[in-house]
């Protein structure tokens, strides 16, 4: 059905998407927790910054990444000097671009499910002898789990669909940064590659739709819990 070349495109996309969401998950959870639970100065600004990639033209995000992580950028130079790592034109750079684009969706999904937790259950756990951390691990985290899974699925779907920021930041290099959308774009530029473009596009549709349905089911489960247990 797919040629070896197309399979390698799919494999690269899955690698980029997987790395992006797994690396972002702890940060996204911390942000979701802070935004759901705490009132602090700068909260509105933080909320705005987290959501910025959702509304900013992706090409701007890509360009900002280029400025920050390029060879002359402050973060790029620091990574190169300290760890000998460069992200530009690498699949890791594509993962970074995808992660930034996925972050708002991941934070939103987890925040909803954290806000749905009945906090009085944590109080009950405390009176039963659980310290803060134990109550978090045994009560809050398991109850937030559907949201965490939804965030992973949704973030992953967003990551493998990332185009604008990726092509701006890490270009379109076969085998390194040419993920599904970039490959489709390239195929459309070449006469006679329409069949390949169609196959990859259908694959994209299938992957995205499956992810959406799965994450919707998970989020619905969280809200069901909430409705059943009051508040």
């Amino acid at each position: 059905m797919l040629s070896p070349q197309e399979w390698s495109i799919v494999a690269l996309s899955l690698k980029v998407g997987g790395a992006a969401v797994l690396a972002t998950l702890p940060l996204a959870f911390a942000l979701a927790w802070a935004l759901a639970r705490y009132r602090f100065p700068g909260r509105v600004l933080l909320d705005g910054l987290v959501h910025l990639p959702l509304v900013l033209p992706p090409v701007v995000t890509g360009w900002l990444l280029l400025l920050a992580f390029g060879p002359a950028g402050p973060l790029g130079r620091w990574l190169a000097d300290a760890f000998g790592v460069t992200l530009m034109f690498r699949w890791t750079g594509a993962a970074l671009a995808a992660a930034i684009m996925a972050l708002p969706l991941m934070v939103r999904a987890m925040r909803l499910s954290i806000e749905g937790i009945d906090r009085r259950l944590e109080g009950a756990a405390r009176t039963l002898g659980a310290g803060r951390w134990h109550a978090f691990r045994t009560v809050s985290l398991p109850l937030a789990l559907p949201g965490v899974l939804a965030a992973l699925v949704l973030g992953f779907a967003r990551s493998i669909g990332e185009f604008g920021a990726t092509i701006t930041f890490v270009s379109n290099i076969p085998g390194e940064t040419r993920t599904l959308p970039l490959a489709i774009y390239s195929a459309l530029q070449v006469p006679g590659a329409e069949a390949m473009a169609t196959r990859l596009a259908l694959l994209s549709v299938a992957l995205s739709l499956a992810a959406l349905i799965l994450s919707e089911a998970l989020v619905r489960r969280t809200h069901g819990e909430r409705a059943r247990h009051g508040d």
């Binding site: 009085r120 259950l121 109080g123 009950a124 009176t127 398991p142 109850l143 009051g230």
Partner: peptide, 20 residues
């Protein structure tokens, strides 16, 4: 003392069992 160190049992109005 934090709640976990007080050795006080609390039965809430709504039971408040852990749903999971």
């Amino acid at each position: 003392l934090p709640p976990e160190a007080r050795r006080i049992g609390y039965v809430f109005q709504d039971g408040r069992l852990f749903p999971h």
